[in-house]
Design a protein around this nucleic acid. Sequence first.
DNA 1: TTGAAAGCGCTAACAC
DNA 2: GTGTTAGCGCTTTCAA
Lengths: 337, 337
Amino acid sequence: MKATIRNVAKLAGVAPSTVSHYLNRSAPLSSTTAKNVESAIATLNYRVNLGARGLRQRKTLSIGLVMPNITIPFFGEIASIIENMFWEKGYQTLLCISERDVEREFLQVLNLASRQVDGLLVAYSSEQSKVFEAAKTLSIPTVFVDRAVSGQYSIATDNFYGGVLAARHLYELGHRRIGVLCGEIEIRNVAERLAGFQAELAQHGIEIQHIVHGRQELQFGLKVSQLLGENGPTAIFATNDIVAVGAWRTLIEAGYRLPEDMSVVGFDDIEISRYLVPPLTTVAQPTREIGARAVKLLLQLIADRNGAATPVSVLVSPTLKIRGSTALARTSPGPST
Amino acid sequence: MKATIRNVAKLAGVAPSTVSHYLNRSAPLSSTTAKNVESAIATLNYRVNLGARGLRQRKTLSIGLVMPNITIPFFGEIASIIENMFWEKGYQTLLCISERDVEREFLQVLNLASRQVDGLLVAYSSEQSKVFEAAKTLSIPTVFVDRAVSGQYSIATDNFYGGVLAARHLYELGHRRIGVLCGEIEIRNVAERLAGFQAELAQHGIEIQHIVHGRQELQFGLKVSQLLGENGPTAIFATNDIVAVGAWRTLIEAGYRLPEDMSVVGFDDIEISRYLVPPLTTVAQPTREIGARAVKLLLQLIADRNGAATPVSVLVSPTLKIRGSTALARTSPGPST
DNA sequence: TTGAAAGCGCTAACAC
DNA sequence: GTGTTAGCGCTTTCAA
């Protein structure tokens, strides 16, 4: 005997709707019928089929989460926070990893829509993404995380301001010859970090001395060697912590002492940054707040689906964590051997 | 006009079942009707409701993934691999993070069952977990990952053997006074690593000189200081890399040179390990293989649901990555200041 | 307080 | 090739 609401009803000698009422407390039941239903449920080991319920109710208590990657600490943490908060609210998270593949990401959004998710949380993979239009035509509440999207709801770090913070810090320490390890400039967040950094330096009439471009990964940091040499920089800004860690490693191996011979500033504040020797000065992403705000906003959009409020892009300010990898500038650069 | 299969059929002037056949290629259609259906779908912007389909077909092309955490690199990678492989096969991953909460984990499994997932992948949180019975009574194909479970399908690292590898390596380098930073012994994997490590040392008549217990997190590694001192160990084994990184930090700060003054071996091979200075010698988890095997096995179990084959626990062997943090033992311990 | 009936959107026999 | 019909398991009027 399959555990369906019908069979439970049969066994309890009541109508299916009565069982439904019991399950949803949508009507008061006499204590005897309640008892009967209860025991019928127990003997059949009945559990509601949420698929069927969703079909009927037109809501699934599920949300779709699309991320480029979850092994990157920042995204992993965001995903974790989001799953946690939604679980608390009774929502199931459907995870999709786009691996920064525009096509795949698009298909994932369509698939999630087909699965009738009540809402969508998207960290899109590139400016060429096709999810923007998709999100609109699908008319399903969507919040973009980590990246600002004009004309859509989004919660993101104020990357420009983060760049400003990094630059200001180095400037105040007396650094004037500054190098940059810059990730993919096509990634809007990276471009903004750089822009903020440059803008702040420009305020003081300083230009970036030397800049190397590469991908936002550890390997790229090793290329810091290209910045070094005669009259090289006294400080380096990496557009994320992973890259900074790579740079840090190369510097140590090249005989630089940190921070005496070279100051290094990262961006993100991943866990490992705190535990390097010296610990890394970095611009900390407001990770928790981004996650929390995104969830709250989406929940709200789901609640008043009609409310055609105008989309807003929220920028959350990052903070500078001053740790051991930055110090007052020396006059002569390079290792002091 | 809502985009349902009925309306598409109406618009195309055919029966719903015809549209269904078109969608599923479950019957050949005349090219004209195919065209009509196609354009009707396009104008209505129709997309199949997978919830309804799932209800009818009694399969949802979705799987549940329960993990204690995804911000830990090892789990993050496993989750990532699993999501990827299932997506390729057309399955949607429903993610649940238990945060090592036994009760929560249990509810999550029940919830996933209610959502009619076709299969379940579980990295359970503790030996007290209630998911073992649940998995049985629910009669839904389940594979446990990362931890062996007798009487159930499981894919896990051979942690004991990993411990052996670490011990053998240190022994062969001449280390005789060896300290251990050991994570929660209640975690079976940790206990097994330690057991293997001890067993191998015992083969050579050596005992662990000193052992400190704590949690499997970076902070704990800082307690390596408790192992140091007069006649302290010349080598340290940490039951995971995160802990090793913490230890490594403390050692550097205490003036130890690695590996001359102290050899360090970790377990996991997380990304950062490669980029420490010196890079960490560690027992590498066969992460990819665990993920891939788990997916393959689950897919297979789903395919032949009837086949009451006997559950198997698969243990995949880890490998030793010898890097810069281990070297031949010196006679006198401590920093050689 | 309980039940009958309709239907969410889809597919699968089976008929034609 | 295509249509008719029934029904997956649930909720929700509405009536009693």
